[in-house]
Design a binder for these strands. Structure first.
Length: 877
RNA sequence: GGGCGCAUAGCUCAGUUGGUUCAGAGCACUUGGUUUACACCCAAGGGGUCGGGGGUUCGAAUCCCUCUGCGCCCA
């Protein structure tokens, strides 16, 4: 038989993925088993796989595969998100390349292009997930704009409207002049930018006097409708009741008084532009000021901008500065750092803008969601630290602006039957809207053609907040069997950056519509960063190509690499070395398998004692680790679960057990040991499968012929048994002895192939159960008991027992004495600190009994060791 | 400006309710090793005043205060 000495992932991965797909192992239907459900955070339909997805989906796949092995009915629902702004922006850009302007198209024409784009690029990311090994139930793949998904969205909108939770408001919103849409507060990123503070002179009407205001946005003077001073500001008492003249446009505006004005900032005079600043809007409302909007939707100036009409706001700013300067209105400028809102998607500077928008009242909706996470623990966040962040956001929540001036998305189901702002009805279909309109207006002459649907689309999150329900059709048919079976889902795995956008809103929707949590646990992964701690992003170009990584290290290698160092909620400093480590690990177990498979098995030889003991020990060790892994999983400590598995396989299985069981060169192995080792290997594969699905299935299927019912992916998790700690302790002692032997061999350059004697001076009883293993791994000819220290020998101690290895030739007695003196000094020091502790009455009285007992044991051990060391020293000198 | 969090070995991180020889792991590093499972290997080893200072306690990496440095979220 020839098995390649290097594991070749490329030969293996597609084969098994196809096999799993063909046998439908990923597909789930309701049955008598308990369900385990995860809904995927739907990636942008036109997106490509990046490192964040890889991490996120690897974790989900680990959880799903483990659930499947533990006998749960595992269901992982995949899908994609229509990502309104991002996708529409891409389509607009593509059309622009072809010389097509979005504004020249009808809604229908544009949507046709958008759907074509979606068909062409959509779902690429799902194909990439398959390369990673994701065992999603592909038959259930959903898209947030699938007809039935959209229907659920519309139904929800209508319902919330009818409950009075959705309203239309003329509000200051965040306007993205590039995408020409509003953004929710969460989609705006505030940045510090270096700018200028302009000091401008406004003439006071009917006098030659001027007042000076400071502004960061001189171009907005065209929208000024007042000057505001603080009534407590003595400097300006003479201005009270007067009027000022806006430079350039010459408009006369009142000087109003309000304590809102910060006397310290700028000049203490504030220009008020209600249309273009949130605070000014509040002032304007309070003082009944006129509202003058000076911008077009692309943030160029409109006719209020006079001769600047048509100029972009930043260009206009420069030009106005010049004119103001020439006309003597500009006193000076100062450098000033101001916070600028920018669009998360287009990076454009946000323009506060007044417009008609749709809002969802959040105040009552959030209540059950706050309770579920912070009071009852119905929904648990991992790690817990995010609860504080969640609280802060939820308790300060503002109404959600759910309308977007986009076409790609669900169109708002509001139908206008007249020209008035309030002349509309909200309905699931235009036919219903007609009935409602007729009823409302008492006018039966209204026809379908008289109705005009609101132009806006809904915020993408308004569809994804229903995701855990809508993928099982739970919004339209809450009583359907699948929904009842799979919902609430178990775990949600996502990044902390969308805790509010998505997670919180899903919880809100869940309680509003099902009176139930949408999921029990939320695992928040960290962000993937590069070695310089920069977030991986396309712009920086510091993100490795996901598929190339898989090609280079194998999907298993990448999965293991990503998980090795990614505690929940901690950012992951990604380093390709990690993938290398993952790949090495896969190769390691591959070679272990190769070794075992290469053994010739004999039915006639008896099982050696060492093998028997080794297997007994490994069994106990395996059980111990299994419990540890279980514990890690229960706390979503995935990295720790993997590390425990890694060490079990690499250290305990390969470095200890296989070395113990390995027959002499070209000798056969006994049947019993072989079978036990195969059994142990199979158990290893079972627990490793969630992390490295491909390699484990490959080995599993190569060990022997398996029927399709016997595939590893649907096999079972090993059973937890009682842990034999005695065996583990005994072995641990033996392993220290073996280390001692190895150290002496190394220091004296005794080759391993030369067998040596070992003498034991026993000061405390120790089991000889593992002597056969000590003999084999130390290449010891014989272990002999002795009553007196050996001369002409090197020694080492384990606990208070002393071991001697006789040496021919000269021994450096000085060195041996020095070594023992060092050990003695350390042990004595330790002894002093322990006895100090024990002679402290307050310690003995206050510390728990258990702790005191441990300290007493330590004292006894140390005393015995000191005694042994002193004896030894005496015998040497 | 408000809120949250972090600081432990060269790197990435564990350290659960203060109490085992508790100062750990993996990687990296140093030294040695060709008996064909694997050099993507084996063995042995070095390395930290737990960010600084103060306090509580019989006992502090762990709790409290303070300083310094970093990160995130929100306005």
């Amino acid at each position: 038989m020839s098995i390649a000495s290097k594991y070749d992932a490329s030969q293996v991965e597609d084969k098994w993925y196809t096999y799993w797909m063909e046998h439908n192992y990923f597909h789930s239907t309701p049955n008598e088993k308990k369900p385990y459900t995860i809904v995927i955070p739907p990636p942008n339909v036109t997106g490509v796989l990046h490192m964040g997805h890889m991490l996120n989906n690897t974790i989900q796949d680990v959880l799903i595969r483990r659930a499947r092995l533990t006998g749960l009915n595992a269901c992982w629902v995949p899908g994609t998100d229509h990502a309104s702004i991002a996708t529409e922006a891409k389509v607009v850009a593509k059309l622009a390349e072809q010389g097509i302007n979005k504004s020249d198209l009808t809604r229908e024409e544009f949507l046709k292009h958008a759907w074509e784009w979606k068909e062409e690029y959509g779902g690429v990311i799902l194909e990439q997930l398959k390369k990673l090994g994701a065992s999603c139930d592909w038959e259930r793949t959903k898209f947030t704009m699938d007809p039935e998904m959209s229907e659920a969205v519309i139904k929800t909108f209508v319902d919330l409207y009818n409950k009075g939770k959705i309203y239309r408001g003329y509000r200051m919103v965040n306007w993205d002049p590039e995408a020409k849409t509003t953004l929710s507060d969460e989609e705006v990123i505030h940045e510090e930018r270096q700018g200028l503070l302009y000091y401008l002179n406004y003439q006071i009407e009917g006098s030659e006097d001027f007042l000076t205001i400071a502004t960061t946005r001189p171009e907005t003077i065209f929208g000024d409708t007042a000057i505001c001073i603080n009534p407590n500001d003595d400097r300006f008492t003479h201005l009270k009741g007067k009027k000022a003249i806006v430079p350039i446009c010459g408009r006369v505006i009142p000087i109003i008084e309000d304590e809102y004005v910060d006397i310290e900032f700028g000049t203490g005079c504030l220009k008020v532009t209600p249309a273009h600043d949130e605070n000014d809007k509040v002032l304007g409302d309070k003082h009944n000021l006129e509202v003058i909007d000076i911008f077009n939707e692309d943030a160029s100036l409109n006719s209020f901008g006079l001769h600047y009409e048509g100029q972009d706001r930043f260009e206009a700013r420069k030009n106005i500065k010049k004119e103001l300067d020439q006309k003597g209105h500009l006193i000076k400028t100062e450098n000033h750092i101001n916070k600028v809102g920018t669009s998360e998607r287009t990076k454009a500077v946000i323009e506060p803008r007044l417009s008609d928008q749709w809002f969802l009242k959040m105040e009552d909706l959030v209540k059950p969601a706050i309770k579920a996470v912070l009071e009852t623990g119905q929904v648990q966040l991992f790690p817990k630290k995010f609860e504080n962040t969640y609280r802060h956001w939820m308790e300060n929540i503002r109404d959600w602006n759910i309308s977007r001036q986009l076409w790609w998305g669900q169109q708002i189901p509001a139908y206008y039957y007249g020209d008035g702002k309030e002349d509309f009805v909200v309905a699931e279909s235009i036919e219903e809207a007609l009935t409602l309109s007729r009823k409302r207006t008492q006018n039966d002459n209204i026809q379908l053609s008289d109705l005009r649907q609101d132009e806006d689309a809904l915020d993408t999150w308004f569809s994804s907040w229903l995701w855990p329900m809508s993928v099982f059709d739970g919004v339209r048919n809450p009583d359907n069997a699948e929904f009842k079976y799979y919902y609430p889902t178990n775990d949600l795995v996502t990044g902390p950056d969308i805790l509010f956008f998505w997670v919180a809103r899903m919880i809100i929707a869940g309680y509003e519509y099902t009176d139930e949590r949408p999921f029990n646990n939320v695992y928040l992964t960290g962000l993937v960063r590069d070695k310089q701690r920069r977030k991986m992003s396309k712009q920086l170009g510091n993100s490795p190509d996901a598929l190339k990584l898989i090609e280079q290290y194998g999907a298993d290698g990448v999965r293991v690499g990503l998980l090795l160092s990614s505690a929940a909620g901690n950012d992951l400093m990604f380093d390709e070395d990690l993938c290398n480590q993952g790949k090495s690990f896969v190769n390691k177990i591959w070679n272990a398998f190769r070794l075992i498979k290469g053994w010739e098995v004999s039915d006639t030889i008896k099982q050696p004692e060492s093998s028997k003991k080794g297997i007994e020990w490994y069994h106990a060790r395996f059980q111990q680790t299994l419990a540890e892994i279980e514990d890690h999983f229960s706390k979503y400590r995935i990295s720790d679960a993997l590390m425990a598995t890694y060490k079990l396989i690499w250290d305990d299985f390969c470095s200890w057990l296989l070395e113990i069981a390995k027959p002499a060169y070209q000798q056969p192995i006994d049947r019993k040991t072989y079978n036990d080792i195969i059994h142990a290997l199979e158990n290893n594969l079972r627990i490793l499968h969630p992390f490295a699905p491909f390699a484990t299935e490959e080995i599993w299927q190569t060990i022997k012929e398996r029927s399709s019912e016997e595939a590893l992916i649907i096999n079972h998790w090993p059973e937890q048994e009682a842990i034999d700690t005695k065996v583990i302790e005994g072995f641990e002692y033996a392993s220290h002895v073996i280390s001692g032997i190895r150290t002496i061999r190394k220091s004296k350059n005794i080759p391993f192939k030369d067998s040596i004697e070992l003498h034991l001076l026993s000061n405390e009883k120790v089991s000889s159960d593992f002597d056969s293993i000590i003999t084999k791994l130390g290449n010891i000819s014989e272990i002999e008991n002795t009553q007196t220290p050996l001369e002409k020998a090197l020694s080492f101690r384990v606990k208070s027992n002393e071991y001697f290895i006789p040496l021919t030739g000269t021994i450096d007695i000085e060195a041996e004495i020095a070594k023992i003196e060092d050990e003695l000094k350390y042990t004595k020091g330790f002894l002093v600190s322990v006895s100090k502790k024990l002679s402290n009455e307050r310690f003995v009285n206050n510390a728990p009994e258990k702790v005191v007992a441990i300290e007493k044991q330590k004292l006894a051990d140390a005393e015995a060791k000191v005694e042994a060391l002193e004896k030894r020293l005496a015998s040497l000198s």
